[in-house]
């Protein structure tokens, strides 16, 4: 399997997202959001500002392995305790598409958004979904892959800090864009710890404008069955 698309811009964030004040999120909305949602809004906003993406109309594909897992674990504790109060806002903030739901509201974006999850292949599947949307040969798609650390008492999974990376993708080359080939092939080399890290590293390579082959698959949580193939991205600057 091989698919070619073009990268018009990339943005990435990693760190403490609690204090982020993304320009696209009005304070009224921001107050209700988690650090993960803020990180997604931050990188999406950067794509709009630096690369002129039309955030009110571009379709958005969001990838996340674990979703709003910190909100979910908090909510589970409340829901399971006999006198626990379940907050309606936290409940609707616990769905996997929460970050991109807020972004669509903030930007007035009515193009269909989607959120995909696929374990170690979450980043790769987000790019494939985008490639499918671009196959008609027109337009742009914004991909944003993001995750936060999975909190205790669940096992340590996901990135060590909130991580988000966004990519403005197009079907055809324009300006400074680089070519990106998504390839499925024999597993080789060390894979990143999680999907969000794979996306973060790819965004870094795209920003440095240096040819690179980046793994799109992460280390497999089902490591007992070694994978024979993984997905990777070849960045080509023509």
């Amino acid at each position: 399997m091989r698919s070619t698309i073009f990268v018009r811009g990339a943005a990435a964030f990693r760190g403490d997202a609690k204090g982020l004040r993304p320009a696209i999120l009005p304070p009224m909305l921001r107050r209700r959001t988690s650090p993960l949602t803020r990180a997604v809004a931050q990188v999406v906003g950067e794509i709009g500002e630096r690369f002129g993406a039309d955030l009110a109309h571009v379709p958005v594909v969001h990838g996340s392995e674990h979703g709003e897992i910190a909100v979910t674990v908090d909510l589970l504790h409340a829901a399971l305790s006999p006198d626990g109060e379940v907050s309606p806002t936290r409940f609707h903030n616990s769905v996997h598409n929460t970050p991109i739901g807020y972004v669509s509201i903030a930007c007035g974006n009515r193009a269909g958004h989607t959120t995909v999850a696929a374990g170690a292949d979450t980043c790769a599947m987000a790019f494939l979904e985008a490639a499918a949307r671009l196959s008609a040969g027109r337009g742009e798609v914004l991909v944003v892959v993001a995750d936060e650390p999975v909190p205790p008492p669940l096992p340590r999974r996901g990135p060590a800090e909130v991580t988000a990376a966004a990519f403005l993708l197009a079907a055809a080359p324009a300006g400074e864009s680089s070519r990106l080939e998504i390839v499925e092939g024999p597993a080789e080399g060390a894979l990143p710890e999680c999907a969000a890290t794979a996306a973060y590293d790819l965004a870094g390579a795209a920003r440095r404008a240096a040819p690179a082959a980046c793994p799109l698959s992460a280390r497999d949580p089902f490591a007992v069955d070694a994978r024979d193939t993984t997905y990777f991205a070849r960045l080509i600057f023509d």
């Binding site: 392995e65 674990h66 979703g67 996997h96 999850a117 696929a118 374990g119 170690a120 292949d121 979450t122 999975v150 669940l154 096992p155 999974r157 949580p221 089902f222």
Partner: peptide
């Protein structure tokens, strides 16, 4: 967690 809770488990 990986084989029960995670979304990836349903696919796998």
């Amino acid at each position: 967690y990986d084989r029960m809770h995670a979304m990836g488990a349903t696919v796998e």
